[in-house]
Design a protein around this nucleic acid. Structure first.
Lengths: 254, 254
DNA sequence: CCAAAAGTGTTAATCGTACACCCATGT
DNA sequence: ACATGGGTGTACGATTAACACTTTTGG
């Protein structure tokens, strides 16, 4: 039990893996990269990499995110500057056999990003893409495509992705995080389509509008209007300062 | 960027730290141990220890818990057997300077336990105790004692404890986890006192009774009654199978 | 009898839901 | 004119909060 017994300090490699979620074409999508080396060569995996010796975990996640996407994310719990995406720690995965090469503990992080142009690969080109979450997690809510299931993600990344999606789904209920999926200025309808895509449900546009505009601090008017969705021009809003929603958004049953 | 460059694999020590919470004498308490060696010798700290080379993170947390308390905890996400306490992963702390000796990444776990006899120390006697959470986190809701602030916990353990308490406070809202603070059979009043201690509020006994007995799957009658609280005998209940509470328990404002 | 805690009834206010209806634009 | 999405009004049922009241024990 002496903490100075070297046999009590087995060396670990520590990595960060990223669950980067966005909403594209009314579907929840995750960023995946193609592995260039074994193990799992050629398979899709979550982006990630090793934590450096003098680097905080959140900083490592932000660095990997920037390398993979060019995004500058901001962990609200850290003083680092940021714009655009939301970043938070998700969970840590440390099964002794999760990486066949060695003992690797991975601290997974969750990133919520607005719809982006085509992802830019870290080093190799055309090796990153947005994958529909339903395709990789199986049929959900009847949205799953039949047949053509893609190969499972490498390592335990399917489990990590599932945990990240579950976290996002529950967190937009009681926080204003859904705005992280939107551009800086957005309409109530765009925000509603985010909720619909993440939850896989249809929401009543009238009640949704009352709810979000009536929750203090959730949205602040940005001044202009837009007609980019067709129909009557919609007011533009920015995310308000509130982070916790009271009362919460209610996810319809089943 | 080659993943086989040894300089990209800085070695880390990986530990688990435990936030073990219980309710004693109508107060939320956390298990703390006194450190026997530097750094922070003589200061209180959260229990914890190094993860072994072939050990899963949850298994390491359960092992440390058993060593410190004799409790057999059960992580619902793992197939390990267990009785009594609830165990779940909390968060991971990896600031490069959090341990002055070396680079240590600590995977904190949260344990919710029923009121226990005096804690049993791991190796040294009388080096573990239940500490009131208010004493270590400062005044909360007017409960904080004035003067006599104890020395801060070692390392970043005050932050870890605060995160664990916050997790427990929010999780008993929408899950049946509050029963983890109760013995196997308990009364509605005892469960109410758990909520009151964890949240630091007073709840209406009548409405609370209706709420918890009316939530399907939360409580199942155990058959007997008890008068251990004085007054009219109260029915005994066991925790039902439900893990998620719908509708949730509502925490009063402020 | 009285204090204390358990449990039930009732009421008014609030909240969520469903849906009718009108508004402002592009085609 | 019509389709499309934006936005407001309203009515009904469900949930909550507040509190009067009865029940069953111990002292």
């Amino acid at each position: 039990m002496s903490p100075y017994d070297p046999s009590a300090f087995p060396p670990f490699a520590v990595t960060v893996d990223l669950v980067v979620l966005t909403v594209r074409r009314h579907a929840l999508c995750a960023l995946v990269v193609r592995r260039g080396e074994p193990p799992f060569q050629g398979r899709w995996a979550l982006p990630g990499g090793f934590v450096r010796g003098d680097e905080d975990l959140a900083a490592a996640a932000a660095r990997e995110l920037a390398e993979e996407t060019g995004l500058c994310a901001h962990d609200p719990a850290s003083p680092a500057p940021g714009n655009g995406a939301h970043l938070e720690q998700l969970a840590t995965y440390g099964d002794p056999k999760r990486d066949p090469r060695m003992r690797v503990v991975s601290v997974a992080h969750l990133v919520l990003a607005p719809d982006l142009p085509a992802p830019r690969a870290g080093g190799d080109a055309n090796s990153a893409r947005w994958a529909s979450v339903e395709d990789h997690l199986g049929q959900e809510n009847g949205f799953g495509r039949e047949g053509e299931q893609p190969a499972p993600l490498a390592f335990d990344h399917a489990r990590i992705l599932a945990d990240g999606v579950e976290r996002a789904r529950s967190k937009i209920e009681y926080s204003s995080l859904a705005t992280a999926f939107c551009p800086p200025e957005f309409t109530v309808g765009e925000l509603r389509r985010v909720y619909e895509a993440v939850w896989g449900v249809a929401l009543d546009p009238r009640n949704f509008h009352r709810k979000v505009t009536g929750t203090p601090g959730f949205l602040v008017p940005a001044g202009g209007t837009t007609t980019r969705q067709g129909g009557r021009p919609a007011q533009l809003f920015r995310a308000g300062g509130a982070t916790v929603l009271n009362p919460p958004m209610l996810r319809p049953e089943v």
